[in-house]
Design a protein around this nucleic acid. Structure first.
Length: 330
DNA sequence: CAGATGTTTCGTCATGGTGT
DNA sequence: ACACCATGACGAAACATCTG
């Protein structure tokens, strides 16, 4: 909803709260427009507490910083209408809101569009390996043949020579990185456990997929409980990468050919497996989305700061020109 | 210090957009 | 048409701050 409100922010004072704390920050926008031709002064309070005065001296065709390319004025009007009649339409409120809140372009798209207009705005790369999404410590140590992310956000890089590197994106630098070597990286005997890994991480359940051969990294102690519920603090969770032929422990997600499913039980298991996989992917996607969103907000804030400086300069320039054009006549 | 209140973080669901 | 992805919305839990 917040981007719709931004559409109004230059004509109405708005105390804006990103809904349900999803954005974890507040940007207060108080605006006052004195009408046509008069400069509109807008106060933008950044989450850091800094107050930015954005004064529109010159009405340029340039879109507002906080406008998405697809501003939908109709939707804003609809929201206002919904708010007014909220008491009578309480039941359909949720559904209506969902309908009202149509999709906006992704942050990556918006930012890239912004950055193509303004040189100061950094681009969000298509591949996160260029930025903080992929910890630099992985690339610094070896040339990985594959990088995977676990369900708890850790990155696992499998390097040539069988070295597995695990890094925690939450920690900066090399501290979060742990490495281990597969002892039988050449040709593992069928059914044999390839490697056991004990990490100092306080994280709980681990699970990731390695396309092709080994399938699972499983925390034996915490099964598949959600990571935030796992109380493994201080313990040394163990992980195993198993060959697909081994009997998998409970909760292990593993691909199966759909054609081999017959019994209802197998179908149910398949459905469960698909659901688990979907949830896991969506979990990771949500994390990534939030990370992008934060980056997006940061970029917007920095752009506001840049525009503020620009604006100041223009005002000064205007004053100078005024002085030149209309010198005092006394 | 305990309870209230606010904030942050995370997982999940719903849904639109997009590629095949 | 379908699968998959991106993201807003929502609720729950953890954490922080305030208040009596």
């Amino acid at each position: 909803m917040w981007w719709h409100q931004h559409n109004l922010c230059f004509s109405h004072p708005i105390e804006e709260d990103y809904s349900s704390g999803d954005l974890e920050k507040k940007v207060s926008v108080a605006g006052s427009s004195t009408g046509r031709g008069s400069p509109a002064v807008t106060l933008v309070q950044l989450p850091s507490g800094q107050t930015v005065h954005v004064q529109g001296v010159i009405q340029t065709p340039q879109p507002s910083v906080i406008q998405s390319p697809q501003i939908q004025t109709v939707q804003v009007a609809t929201i206002a209408e919904t708010d007014e009649s909220a008491d009578s339409e309480g039941v359909i409120d949720s559904h209506k809101r969902r309908e009202i809140l149509s999709r906006r372009p992704s942050y990556r798209k918006i930012l890239n569009e912004l950055s193509s207009d303004v040189p100061g705005v950094p681009k969000i790369e298509e591949e996160k390996s260029e930025e903080e999404g992929s910890p630099p410590n992985i690339a610094a140590m070896a040339v990985p043949t594959g990088i995977y992310q676990t369900s708890t956000g850790q990155y696992i890089a499998i390097a040539q020579g069988g070295t597995i590197q695990i890094s925690n994106p939450g920690s900066d630098g090399v501290q979060g990185l742990q490495a281990l070597t597969m002892t039988n990286s050449g040709a593992p005997p069928p059914g044999a456990t390839i490697v056991q890994y004990a990490a100092q991480s306080a994280d709980g359940t681990q699970q990731f997929f390695v396309p092709g051969s080994q399938v699972v990294v499983q925390d034996e102690e915490t099964e598949l409980a959600p990571s935030h519920m796992a109380a493994a603090t201080g313990d040394m969770p163990t992980y195993q990468i198993r060959a697909p032929t081994t009997a998998l422990p409970q909760g292990v997600v593993m691909a199966a050919s759909p054609g081999s499913l017959h019994s209802p039980q197998q179908l149910a298991e398949e459905a469960t497996r698909k659901r688990e996989l979907r949830l896991m992917k969506n979990r990771e996607a949500a994390k990534e989305c939030r990370r992008r969103k934060k980056e997006y907000v940061k970029c917007l804030e920095s752009r506001v700061a840049v525009l503020e400086v620009q604006n100041k300069k223009l005002i000064e320039e205007l004053e100078t020109l005024k002085d030149i054009c209309s010198p005092k006549t006394d």
